[in-house]
Amino acid sequence: MDHGSKEHIERQVKVYISVFAALAFLTVVTVAVSYLKLPFAAGVAVALFIALIKGSLVAAFFMHLLTEKQIIFSILAVTALFFAFLLLLPAITSAEVMSYVS
């Protein structure tokens, strides 16, 4: 499939509009859910889940990750892995110390 062709781009434009609608809808949903005053853990899970969907939509369609090349995926996979280390290891380390304190 030629990604540069006129027909393809015109089809894409329609997709962009639907993605925009989905993003706007999810924004309203996540705000609405926050007013429900869910228990803390559930609230975090729902909010992050919705943010993850929104982020994936932006990355997949606006940033064309759906049709991107292998080399980009490789770099992003490595980044995601190190991002996870960076986010989790300090928190786990400090959580273990806290568990001794309490």
Partner: peptide
């Protein structure tokens, strides 16, 4: 940022 800062 939006949910993390404003909604949680």
């Amino acid at each position: 940022l939006f949910p993390v800062l404003y909604l949680l």
